[in-house]
Structures are given as C-alpha cells and as structure tokens.
Simulated scan of single mutants.
Amino acid sequence: MQVHSFTLEDVRNAMDYTLLKPIASKEDITKFCHETIQYDFKTIFVNPYYVEHAYALVKDHGIKVGVPIGFSLGGATTSTKVQETKEAIKNGAVEIDMLINLGALKSKEFSVVQQDISEVVKASNGLLTKVIIETALLSQEEKITACQLIVEAGADFVKTATGFNGGGATLEDVQLLRETVGPSIGVKAAGGIRTFENAVKMLQAGANRLGTSGAVEIITGNLSTSSY
C-alpha cells in the first residue's frame, strides 16, 4: 500500500496550536498569539476565559480561535456545556472541541452521551464540532461505541485526547477511529505529538487535524523541554 507523503505545509495547515495550561497568564496567551501569527498557524485553542483576548489579537490575521468545552474531565451537565459553547462563540470562537461525558459512557448510558453531544452540536449552530473521547481511558469496545454515538449525534470530528488525563494519540487509536467513522467524519489526533515525524505518521494513519502545544517545535525542528 502506498503511503502518502506530507510536506511541512501540510502539517502546518493540519495543526491546531494549543495553550490550555491552567496556569497560563494573559502575557503567555499574548506571546502564544504572536507566535501563531509569526509561524502562520491556522487555528489556535485557548481556554474559554481567554477566547475574547485571543480573538482580538488574531482576528485580523485569518486565524481561527477554537475552545475546549467541558474541559478537561467532561463531567459537566449538558446545560453547562451548552451555555459554555454559546458564550465562547459570542466571544469569537469558531471551533468547538467538547469532551464526551466519560462517566455516562462507562455507565452505558448511551442515550445520555449522544444527547449531550447533540445539544452542543445544536448550540454550535453549524460551526465545526469535535468530540474528545480520551482513548487512553477507554476499552476498544468503548472507543468504537463512542465513535458511533458521535456520528449519530451529528458532530464533525472525533478527537483522541485532551492530553491532561493520561495517554495521548497513538497510531493504533487513530487508525481505529478512522476505520470506525469512515471517510465522512474527521479524526483529530491530540496528546503527545511533539515531532514532525510523529505528526506525519498521525496524518498517514488517518488524522485530518493535529492538536498540539508543540507546534513551533514541530515546524522548526527545535525540541524544547517547555510545554504549553
């Protein structure tokens, strides 16, 4: 089987550059936004509190602001996630990455899980929605079930992980998610992607998007011990 090769531009365009550390200051966010402009990244993700600030800094540069919803545990009520989504959109967010209700999934309350997703999709009002499933915390069967619920709920992407709850993107999980959702739904690999080579492998395994706090290092090839 021929393996598709990906250029530096392909990787740059697929990356969602993230700064989601709970102790990130406004100064950190400002520096992060300036880096995004400097390296021509297309999408950034910041916590809800910083959406308005980040949007003000990047809106004139064709850069999209995304926001995590129900981050980083997923246990918020659906109404809370919906309100968080609406407020983030009001503040400038145009991509929504919500965390699945892991407790409900583990409890086999599948209708609850699906409804939770579909209400956030509805609140997103046509904006791109991705659903984080935390693959490291799920069995193979649960990963497949989660993907099926995401498709049924009308979301646009399934995403591997937050990077905050142990484990991250693996090639095996990306391949499984792609096989489960088919070609019509996006797959976002996130968690632990720190090198250009690893980023390319994720894309070759079936990912459309890459979530990473190490986007600058990936593009420049300069690995750093610091992490956003």
Rank of each mutant, 00 (worst) to 15 (best):
A88F: 00
A88L: 04
I89S: 10
I89N: 03
I89F: 03
K90C: 05
K90E: 06
K90N: 10
K90T: 12
N91Y: 00
N91A: 03
N91Q: 06
N91T: 00
G92V: 03
G92T: 02
G92W: 14
V94K: 11
V94A: 13
E95I: 11
E95L: 06
E95M: 07
I96E: 08
I96H: 05
D97V: 08
D97L: 06
M98D: 07
M98S: 12
M98N: 07
M98G: 12
M98I: 11
L99D: 13
L99R: 06
I100Q: 09
I100R: 04
I100K: 05
N101G: 10
N101M: 06
L102Q: 13
L102R: 12
L102G: 14
G103A: 02
G103M: 05
G103N: 05
A104R: 09
L105P: 09
K106N: 11
S107C: 12
S107M: 14
S107P: 13
K108Y: 13
K108Q: 13
K108G: 06
K108V: 04
E109V: 10
E109M: 12
E109F: 04
E109S: 13
S111R: 04
V112M: 14
V112N: 10
V112W: 13
V113W: 02
V113L: 00
Q114R: 12
Q114V: 08
Q115L: 07
Q115W: 15
D116G: 06
I117K: 04
I117R: 02
I117T: 07
S118Y: 08
S118I: 01
E119P: 14
V120C: 11
V120S: 07
V121M: 01
V121F: 02
V121W: 02
K122F: 07
A123G: 07
A123F: 00
A123C: 02
S124Y: 03
S124I: 02
S124F: 01
N125L: 05
N125P: 08
N125H: 12
G126R: 10
G126L: 09
L127Y: 14
L127S: 10
L128F: 12
L128G: 06
L128D: 04
L128K: 15
L128S: 11
L128V: 11
T129R: 02
K130L: 03
K130A: 07
K130T: 04
K130Y: 01
K130W: 03
V131G: 09
V131E: 03
V131P: 10
V131F: 00
V131S: 02
I132R: 03
I133D: 06
I133V: 10
I133M: 06
I133T: 01
I133E: 06
E134P: 13
T135K: 01
A136N: 13
A136K: 08
A136S: 15
A136Q: 12
L137K: 15
L137T: 10
L137Y: 13
L137S: 15
L138T: 12
L138R: 06
S139E: 05
S139R: 03
S139A: 08
S139I: 01
Q140T: 11
Q140Y: 15
Q140W: 13
Q140D: 15
Q140E: 15
Q140H: 14
E141H: 13
E141I: 05
E142N: 09
K143I: 08
I144A: 10
I144Q: 09
I144N: 09
I144P: 12
T145C: 12
T145K: 15
C147M: 00
C147K: 02
Q148F: 14
Q148R: 12
L149P: 01
I150E: 05
E152Q: 14
E152W: 11
E152L: 13
